[in-house]
């Protein structure tokens, strides 16, 4: 292939990792909720979309992007907690397909409500002034905003890791995921723990939606696309494993990027091929616990 230089390959690799960071952000909320609650949240994409719309709405009221970075996860997280308390909670202990179907239906309702409220056509979402333009990263120019998204993904992951591994509340969450019965016997209100976990998972989905808005604009259907990709990342990484989601997300980004260089038509299919190969060799994914689904 003509024009294939070292710089191009390096740039392509970097683009892939950047793309991967975005995929990690998409997938991490889904993975958290599944790992801790064994709930497959099909409304994940809808919460992501709502995050973008909440951001749009707050900015139209005179807010700015930086304020949204705090407000959007809060608002989306609280709405996620309301959903958990009143819709998901009655379904615990009934088999994995009950909450799956519920959230599937819920996603349609959320998309339709947004269409009614904001219309079917999309809205522009400008990149914040401070983060506009491209910077030279040594091998070529790269958009500043994408670098910011990588940083944001790292901060979210670090925060989540510290919270789960280094706080006593995190310890309770992890214990609750292993054996809710014993935790309950020890006098912990497990229902409250799950409420917070669901809230955190949806808050991250909302934040991801807000961060994606300047990359691609805002439309009611924006969540549908990323849901499939988030599932691929979650499945490849191992259902419920946060570390697995990180590695799988980056891998998916690099696979897409490299296929785009050599066979762009195959880029969309390549991640599903990757998933099929991983499932054939290691059905539980990279770091998944076998039997979580049963």
């Amino acid at each position: 292939m003509p024009g294939l230089s070292f710089d191009l390959i390096a740039m392509q690799l970097f683009t892939g990792l950047a793309l991967g960071a975005i995929y990690v952000l998409f997938a991490i909320g889904l993975s958290l909720i599944f790992g801790m609650l064994t709930v497959v949240n099909f409304a994940h994409g809808a919460f992501y979309m709502v995050g973008a719309y909440v951001g749009l709405f707050l900015i139209s009221l005179g807010g700015n992007f930086w304020l949204c970075l705090v407000a959007v996860p809060l608002i989306v997280g609280i709405s996620g907690m309301i959903v958990e308390r009143f819709l998901i909670r009655p379904l615990y202990g009934r088999g994995i397909d009950y909450p799956l179907l519920l959230t599937f239906g819920l996603s349609y309702i959320m998309v339709e409500l947004i269409r009614i409220g904001f219309g079917t056509s999309g809205y522009p979402f400008d990149t914040p002034d401070l983060l506009q333009g491209a910077v030279n990263i040594g091998i070529g120019y790269f958009p500043l905003y994408r670098l910011f998204v990588i940083g944001a993904a790292a901060v979210v992951l670090l925060g989540l890791w510290l919270f789960l591994e280094r706080t006593s509340f995190g310890l309770i969450i992890r214990a609750g995921a292993r054996d809710p019965q014993i935790v309950r016997v020890l006098g912990v209100d497990v229902a409250r723990v799950w409420l917070y976990v669901f809230g955190i998972g949806t808050a991250i989905a909302g934040l991801a939606g807000l961060l994606a808005a300047p990359l691609q604009g805002v439309i009611p259907e924006m969540g549908a696309n990323i849901l499939a990709e988030a599932f691929v990342v979650t499945v490849v990484g191992g259902m419920g494993s946060i570390g697995g989601a990180v590695i799988a997300g980056l891998l998916v980004g690099v696979v897409i990027s490299m296929t785009s260089l050599f066979a762009p038509e195959m880029a969309k299919v390549s991640i599903f091929a990757l998933m099929a190969i991983v499932l054939l060799i290691r059905p539980q994914g990279f770091f998944g616990r076998a039997g979580l689904m049963s």
Partner: peptide
């Protein structure tokens, strides 16, 4: 593919 939401991986080659 139709319905692509991220073109970033296709752009470096064009730039080069």
């Amino acid at each position: 593919p139709i319905g692509t939401t991220d073109f970033s991986a296709l752009l470096p080659r064009i730039q080069a």
